[in-house]
Structure formats: C-alpha cells, structure tokens
Simulated scan of single mutants.
Amino acid sequence: MGRQTSFFWDDQSDNQTLVVEFAAVHPAHDPRRGGTYYEVQRREGLYWRRIADDGDWSTRLHWTRLPSGDHTTVSTVRIEWRVPPGTPPGRYRVVYRGGGPGLAAFEGHSTEFDLAVDEL
C-alpha cells in the first residue's frame, strides 16, 4: 500500500496539472480526523514543507476499485494538483497516507520533481 503506480503531467488541461496514482485503500477506512489524506510538499533545506493538501481547491482525490481475479480488494488513489500561478520554483513531491481496521498505517511518496520558473 502507498506504492506510487504512475506519475505524469496532464497535457489536456489549460493549467499545469500534476497527476500521481498510488496503490491504496478506500479513504473511508481511516477518516484521518485532525490530519490529511495527502499533501503536496516543497523541499526547504533538509525538510519538506506542506504547501497544499486535501483541503485546498487546487487538489483533488479520485478513488477507484480495480478488477481483481482473486477477489481481493485492489484500488488506486489518483491525486491531482493544479499548480497555482505564482507557485515558487523548487523541488516538490506528493505524500499519500492511509490505513484502517486490520491494516497498519502507511505513507507513500511520489517521485520528487522540480518546478522551474519557465514552467509556471
């Protein structure tokens, strides 16, 4: 769980939209009270700083159950981040968290990526 399955820039939208997919569980398994399901983070020195999360208008989460031949529950979470104008250049990543009854809490990280001034 939490393993990144895809990472790409959506060329079909008018704005720059990053799309990351993770192997996941249904978000209702862990309501994340007082926390977030996912964050967009920017590198600041040795640390990562949250700049957007599931409460921001620039982000979306889509959960999908996938067909499974062995009758297990296989699903993905697709996280989209529409990069807002004025976003500072730098190194970024997306972090996804999950868990639930009978499942240990987990955290997955996307591939790190750089935003340059000319891309924004």
Rank of each mutant, 00 (worst) to 15 (best):
G2E: 02
G2P: 02
G2L: 05
R3T: 06
R3L: 05
R3P: 00
Q4Y: 02
T5S: 09
S6L: 04
S6V: 01
F7T: 00
F7V: 00
F8P: 03
W9K: 05
Q12D: 11
Q12M: 11
S13V: 04
S13C: 07
S13A: 07
D14Q: 13
D14Y: 07
D14A: 11
N15W: 06
Q16S: 01
T17G: 00
T17S: 00
L18M: 02
L18E: 02
V20T: 01
V20C: 01
F22D: 01
A23G: 02
V25C: 06
V25K: 11
H26R: 13
P27N: 08
P27L: 11
H29F: 14
D30N: 10
D30S: 14
D30R: 06
P31M: 05
P31F: 04
R32L: 09
R32F: 10
R33P: 08
G34D: 15
G34F: 15
T36K: 15
Y37S: 13
E39I: 13
E39V: 14
E39F: 11
V40K: 07
V40N: 05
V40Y: 05
R42G: 04
R42A: 05
E44N: 12
G45M: 10
L46H: 13
L46V: 14
Y47D: 15
Y47A: 12
R49K: 14
A52I: 14
D53C: 13
D54M: 08
G55A: 09
W57M: 10
W57H: 09
S58I: 08
T59M: 09
R60H: 08
R60G: 04
R60D: 07
H62P: 00
W63R: 11
T64G: 04
R65Q: 11
R65D: 13
L66F: 08
P67L: 15
P67K: 15
P67H: 15
G69A: 15
D70L: 05
H71P: 02
T72V: 11
T73M: 12
V74H: 09
S75I: 06
S75C: 10
S75M: 07
I79W: 09
E80D: 09
W81L: 03
W81F: 08
R82A: 13
V83W: 07
V83H: 07
V83S: 05
P84D: 07
P84K: 12
P85D: 12
G86Y: 10
G86C: 09
G86P: 13
P88Y: 13
P89G: 02
G90K: 06
G90E: 06
R91L: 14
Y92W: 14
R93I: 15
R93M: 15
V94A: 04
V94L: 07
V95P: 09
V95S: 08
V95M: 11
Y96I: 03
R97E: 10
R97L: 13
G98D: 10
G98K: 04
G100C: 03
G100L: 06
P101Q: 00
P101C: 00
G102T: 01
G102L: 02
G102K: 02
G102Y: 01
G102P: 00
L103Q: 05
A105E: 14
A105R: 14
F106D: 03
F106Q: 04
E107F: 02
E107G: 04
H109S: 11
H109Q: 11
S110I: 05
T111Y: 00
T111N: 03
T111M: 00
E112K: 02
F113M: 00
D114V: 04
L115H: 02
A116G: 06
V117Y: 07
E119S: 03
E119L: 04
L120C: 09
